[in-house]
Write a protein that binds this DNA or RNA. Structure first.
Lengths: 215, 215, 215, 215
DNA sequence: CATGAATGAGACTTCATTCAT
DNA sequence: GATGAATGAAGTCTCATTCAT
């Protein structure tokens, strides 16, 4: 869907979406490689496969590219989280599944996620608040899963804290890869984090063996 | 001590240290306010209390300022961690004390820590590796405390994981302040994180009441 | 009549004229509002009611638009001057009538006239000479009226000078509106200028009351 | 005197004045040659004898150059008018002298004056109002001379009108040079305009021969 | 040692013009 | 004939860095 937050001079919405996707794809890899500030608009244009003039038909400002990139990453993460979290079962397994899926997702998109968190501060206050909301939505999803899966005695505050812990543990798999990915496979990392999570909640998990791998 | 990694044309080491401290102090607040890339060298010079010409007597490039700033923050964090972790006691209380002290430290220096992690990627590869080593040292300190404090049956891998978790939980207090610091006081945050930590380790903590507040 | 000085790729002369009239109308108001240089061709196209592609079917360059605009203004001024100056009577009243009509005209078209004189220098030398000729024609018309209306003892040089004075006094009503139109109504301005004109020529004007208002 | 309306990053006011004078000199000739919009900042820098970077140490914006140029021209005109108008004598000769001097001035500075009036509209509203005030001051000077020199029966309105007429007649010597300077010498032009001026005022001037030429 | 004026590479952005549909 | 997406030359302005004083 065409992002209505960044106006374009091009009228055809389908074209706008297509070109912006090219743009995001090109920009993400550049941002991963050298960061937002060291990437020039000409490089973005070239990596997107069109001229600098064309680039500016689809955005107003270099910062718009960053916004589009961040928004797209958030969106992709969110969509995949929604897919993974839709289990109706209210068992501990659905929490295990959610965490496993989320960690897998953070592994798949680690470059994007790392870049996004490093550069988001370069957005305008407005734009930052916009993406912050998406972040809150995602934490809320995690909160929902946890609340459904564990004994009702846990306080809302504790649930929030645990959700944040899980959220950040997913991110740290990417941010601290130089340490963690030398010591753990993703599977081992996931297993141990879930272990401590459940122990922390005093849940006598039968088995973590039959957790599903997410699609 | 004068940082030997950044050469200066000035001979007097005492002067170099003095000027660099002025510089770091000025630069940190600018970086916190507007980030490294949006801060100009002129602004740094002015905030440091001397001219642009003088600034360049004490550094070679703008990146040197960032390095000095990151290094200084790491150093301050490390020093305070060493002070807090020097307990010889091998009890669970020393872990509790260490975590509490560390979280307090992360609260005190949250602006600096946030800035440092956001900008460190702008350093050269060399410089990044240099500061990464400090990061590893700090995690190692945490590993040491944990290993000393808990039953010997815990695997080294688990200890590493727990150290990383604690480390990141300290950082997230600053990074996610917009969420956490609305829901928790530092004390409550600390208490609950320690609670889940010990539960996760199946430690039947007597009391967390007598944890020391660090200096 | 289609202006043959600016070629068009469109064959149908009626259409060319129609489109160019739309174009001139749109462009004039833009030029009045923001000047030639700050007006973009896209804005001209939009104000004209067609697309940028279509605009370029009827002109070759942006400068052509300016030429068309200047030419159109000159033409409109000239036509109205011809209507007002066609009196055959060789009396002082026809001079009074001519000046009155001309000032009225300059009042009606002050925006256009101001814009034209401010932007004409942006035309090519050729185009400037072309419109300069129209200017000369208009002064010549004034010269004709003066020569016919006043005693034959006045030198040709003086007549030229007076024609230029009148010409410029008409323009200054628009150019210096911030001063003159605060102090004078158009009627008062006209009356006093004619007064000094006739006094300067030592003409014992009977009455200025019966000067005609032009259509 | 350093123009306080355009801030500079250079601290030494003497240097600012010196460099700005270079700048104005270079810019005026470029503006005369090709107009403000077709002159690039790089050309201005080169014509001023310094680099583009240095240019921007002394101004914020290209428009600042135009403002400095217009202000400087106005100031030079005003200073010379003050010198020429300072006569205390309340005779018709002082009017004659003033007009003669003013026309001479407009002849000397015709290029500058023409450029200034053509480009002043590109200034911001603020800046336009600032220079407009100088224009008003100059007209007021003319008004003062006229009021002192002619019989007291003339109305203030008429004096204003005459002052504006003289003012514009000076300008038109430059603006309409393609016509006037082919037909008149400056002396003849001056003589005939003064002739009509005095006749218009019904002043029986003794002789215009002994009018002073201004410095 | 300190200063700050000078430099110019290079960044972002605009916009007149073209041309395939 | 009409459209509007694509182009890229060129413009304004910034800022890290140098060096004469």
């Amino acid at each position: 869907m065409t992002d209505q937050h960044v106006p374009s001079s091009i009228k055809d919405p389908g074209l706008v979406e297509k070109r912006r996707n090219q743009m995001i794809k090109g920009a993400v890899s550049l941002f991963i490689e050298k960061g937002f500030h060291k990437t020039t608009t000409r490089e973005i244009a070239k990596a997107s496969g069109f001229s600098i003039g064309t680039l500016y038909e689809y955005i107003r400002t270099k910062e718009d590219v960053l916004f589009l990139v961040c928004d797209s990453i958030y969106e992709r993460v969110k969509v995949r989280m929604e897919q993974a979290f839709d289990a109706d079962t209210k068992t501990i397994d659905s929490l295990i599944h959610a965490v496993t899926s989320y960690f897998q997702l953070m592994d798949d998109m680690q470059d994007e996620v790392v870049v996004m968190y490093q550069e988001v501060k370069s957005l305008s206050r407005e734009a930052q608040e916009y993406v912050l909301q998406k972040e809150k939505d995602m934490v809320a999803m995690l909160v929902g899963v946890i609340r459904n899966s564990i004994p009702g005695t846990t306080s809302e505050q504790d649930i929030t804290l645990i959700a944040n812990n899980i959220f950040v543990q997913g991110q740290m798999w990417g941010f601290r890869r130089w340490m963690l990915q030398k010591e753990f496979t993703l599977e081992a990392y996931t297993e141990r984090q879930i272990h401590f999570l459940l122990e922390g909640l005093n849940i006598n998990r039968k088995s973590i063996i039959n957790d599903g791998r997410m699609s």
